[in-house]
């Protein structure tokens, strides 16, 4: 009986590991870039959280607005205080689906181009976005990158007339992440 007990436990354990295709990162990098003749604005946040479930293709990102670092401290203040209102809307979130997630072969090195679609919530406003993304598998390591643009007007971020020429209407967002397998909680 005790042998059977042991076998069953081991089986149970293995079964769990085999099904788990959930990957995560807590150090996803999100940068954005606004470019006008007057001013270039760059900001980076390297502590975004992201989880992908390759059994369903579901993907999520979450990032703290306050964690974006700017070259100029004053810009960072204004970003939080005047534009993103980070005390009211502390997080930006993305919740979506990798439409062709089946293309990604996690056990074979290569680059996989996929299409991601989902809801992007910034500044309390949710909009559907769609973008191309690339997954890279190398030596059993999974990483991802994507680039897309958002119109700041879409997210109810108001830019006053005096600085109209300093802030681009369209902001380019680049995201990258090195994923790790999420160990299931037994």
């Amino acid at each position: 009986m005790s042998t059977k007990f042991l076998m069953a436990t081991v089986f149970c354990f293995c079964a769990h590991l085999a099904i788990s295709q959930t990957y995560y990162s807590k150090s996803g990098k999100i940068t954005f870039h606004s470019d006008t003749d007057m001013e270039k604005i760059d900001a980076e946040n390297a502590s975004a959280s992201t989880v992908i479930d390759f059994t369903t293709g579901a993907i999520e990102w979450g990032v703290l607005i306050q964690g974006f670092k700017f070259e100029k401290a004053l810009m960072q203040d204004h970003f939080n205080e005047n534009y993103m209102e980070s005390s009211k809307f502390p997080k930006a979130k993305f919740r979506g689906i990798i439409e062709d997630y089946a293309k990604v072969n996690l056990s074979k090195d290569g680059e996989y181009k996929v299409r991601v679609k989902g809801d992007l919530e910034i500044h309390g406003v949710t909009k559907t976005v769609e973008t191309d993304a690339t997954f890279m598998v190398k030596n059993n390591m999974l990483s991802a990158k994507s680039k897309f643009s958002v119109l700041i007007d879409d997210y109810a971020i108001k830019v006053p007339k005096v600085v109209e020429n300093n802030i681009a209407d369209e902001v380019e967002i680049t995201i990258t992440a090195d994923y790790q397998l999420l160990k299931p909680k037994l």
Partner: peptide, 18 residues
């Protein structure tokens, strides 16, 4: 569920600015 809830969130220090 929320996929992100699978991760334990580390609490950060939020300094009050401005």
């Amino acid at each position: 569920d929320d996929l992100l809830s699978l991760l334990d969130e580390e609490e950060t220090i939020n300094y009050t600015t401005a």
